[in-house]
Design a protein around this nucleic acid. Structure first.
Lengths: 255, 255
DNA sequence: AGTGGTTTCGAACGGTGTTCGTGAATGACG
DNA sequence: CGTCATTCACGAACACCGTTCGAAACCACT
């Protein structure tokens, strides 16, 4: 069946070295470390423990190796983060541009982005401030740019929109993940939705009880300020950005 | 001249305590620690070394005291960050609402916010994910909300807009500060503007040299993607958000 | 002078990213 | 099979981090 594998074991006693070669009696005891395996483990760990749960030490522990071993395959933690983000980006697929539907297509891609961040807790923090220069991220940028341009958006507006929209979604996801992390740490709740309602309730009470003479609007509109979950707020943001793009695109036609 | 000051020195050996009282021979050797002094020092340090330059240790060192001393005045680093942000917020003043001019007024407040972040490097990172619950931050929220509402924006749209716009400006500032920090660390440049041009140049070259068959839009619009400095991009974002608000406000009138 | 409560702070705990040097495993070649 | 150079793995160490503890020092008041 499988190819004949060879294993060698080396011992040393002073200058003397002994090598034993076996014909795959007991298969390779440890799989060799690769970038792939490291990124895989990092993603598992991040999904389980969040961004701060992924340290070079915990990652090495999860891979049953030493910390220093990781640095043979990854320059530093920043590069690791980039690799993780890029891997995640490659999970998202962007649709073929449909010029009739560009606005809705854009919104959908951005919704999918948030969903992706949510599926991998902790990633938003890693993605902030990262310029897509690798395969995965570039694919998304290319797709969004295509949708805009083919939809008739002026090039400069399209380019800046992609930048800003990605930043916005990332920021929303980051904020959300800060709060879920806070919930995990606090451990007072099991359900995220319940937790958010609780925070909103406390916040609304706090806003409502401010001195009404100095904060008339905050107290008066406490309900609106604390209304809506993450999805509703994202949807509002997308509405703003896309409506804004429709309104502003032509103003940037002449660069 | 000055009032007669007393100084006491206490020694202890088990249950026995010995106190020596001097009549202000050498005046009080150390000024007492206060929240104010701590926040002052934190801001100085942050301005000089960025967010990561402010650790409880480095802060204690700057104040010529022990780390543990800080915890008598500040619960933890998170609270310290809040205090710093709040102090900064109180530097910004928001104008009286002018209903004719609400859109421009909003933009100006947001521009001022970015300017404030810029004046205090590192603060954007600290402000991310922070809900304004103290004096300084609330004042800004109140002011922006007032401008919106008095300008005729629907309450729910106004509330969410304030949230999203603040998030956006913070994200822009954060991204900017990541890059300036990278410049400081890299130390290849002295001037930020020059540094940005350099990065943009490299980026444009990288985008331009991608395989044109798989990334036709990214390669084709490399110039637009890398165009514009922070201010131009912020201005575009504000244009998007405010135009979007004008367009979307009524859709959220019935909550 | 005595005492109680507050403030100060050195030392330590358990974490972090990263580097260094050693030695084991491996591929190539005779 | 023997030898060698290269690659890879990894324990130990360095210099940090936020936070806690307990004891010392200090202030205000009796």
């Amino acid at each position: 069946m499988g190819a004949v594998e060879k294993r060698t074991k080396t011992f040393r006693a002073g200058p003397v070295r002994i090598r034993v070669t076996t014909d795959d009696a007991a298969a390779r005891p440890k799989e060799r470390l690769t970038r792939e395996r490291i990124v895989d483990a990092a993603m598992d760990l991040m999904a389980e423990k969040g961004y701060d749960g992924v340290s070079m030490r915990s990652l090495a522990r999860a891979l049953d190796t030493g910390q220093a071993s990781l640095y043979a395959h990854v320059a530093n933690k920043e590069e690791l983060d980039q690799l993780v983000i890029d891997r995640i980006c490659s999970e998202l697929d962007v649709p073929e541009p449909d010029p009739e539907n560009w606005a809705e297509q854009l919104k959908q891609v951005l919704r999918d982005c948030l969903e992706l961040y949510r599926a991998h807790p902790g990633t938003a923090r890693a993605a902030m401030g990262m310029i897509p220069t690798q395969e995965g991220g570039l694919r998304i940028a290319e797709g969004m740019l295509a949708i805009c341009i083919r939809g008739g958006v002026s090039p400069q507006a399209a380019a800046w929109f992609c930048d800003i929209a990605a930043l916005f979604v990332c920021a929303v996801a980051y904020e959300e993940q800060i709060w879920t992390q806070r919930m995990v740490d606090g451990a007072g709740h099991d359900d995220l939705h319940e937790f958010h309602e609780d925070v909103d309730g406390q916040l609304m009470a706090a806003f409502g009880q401010l001195p009404a003479d100095r904060f008339p609007f905050v107290t008066g509109y406490a309900r609106e300020l604390t209304a809506g979950d993450g999805d509703e707020r994202l949807e509002f943001g997308l509405d703003l950005l896309v409506s804004g793009l429709e309104a502003a695109s032509e103003r940037y036609r002449d660069r």
